[in-house]
Design a protein around this nucleic acid. Structure first.
Lengths: 105, 105
DNA sequence: CGCTGATGCTTGCAAAATACAAGTGGCGGG
DNA sequence: CCCGCCACTTGTATTTTGCAAGCATCAGCG
């Protein structure tokens, strides 16, 4: 399998990259991620489980019923890719699109 | 909206980045993309329409009923992000996962 | 001890995205 | 005229995602 296909199997699902991006700022708790991203709670739980299984992040137990999610080395290695995508989004989305599609002309 | 969220609205759908990756090798025809990627034909048609609307690629008419799809400048600008993701996938997927999740130990 | 609030989820169900299979329309060659 | 290639469309099943509500645990408080 190509590298891109492999990467997308892990972080290609909806919200996955957004979650990792948030965690690049440091470990965060479940409720923080939920409020910052606006992600549905069941999706967040599912993604966190998948990303933990994939070795992208791990759970850090805090006090009693609170815990934090932190990126592993593998998760931190996504910073370059995320930054590149974010820069592309900032630079190229919402602009007039020089070579835009317009079947009428 | 953050840059990453904007980017994912355009290229976050399934197959979108794979399609762009293929086109980084130069313009290709519909059937070529379909065979190289193994993408369902209706999804391919839908994605190509969306990516064209977003100004990521454009159609090049060839002879009679054949045409090629080629990246625009905006599409080519994705090369860095795609390469970064592909490198991450090659390096970090399928490996033993040093800090892997394993609740049993 | 029982109540309350915070936190981190799970569960049930509807909507949307995706996959699979088959069919359509244009055109060139025989 | 008919056949095959090419680029799709259409109908339907399956999977993913979203929304709303509920559950479990524990600390703090009276």
């Amino acid at each position: 399998m190509s590298g891109l296909a492999a990467a997308l199997e892990v972080v290609g699902a909806r919200w996955a990259l957004r979650i990792v991006e948030q965690l690049l700022d440091g470990p965060q708790r479940y409720g923080d991620l939920q409020r910052d991203l606006g992600v549905p709670t069941n999706m967040l739980a599912t993604r966190l489980r998948e990303l933990e299984t994939a070795g992208v992040l791990r759970r850090l137990p805090l006090k009693h019923n609170t815990r934090a999610y932190a990126l592993t080395e593998r998760g931190l290695a996504l910073r370059g890719a995320i930054d590149a995508l974010a820069r592309w989004g900032s630079a190229h989305v919402g602009e007039p699109a020089a070579g835009a599609a317009d079947p009428q002309r």
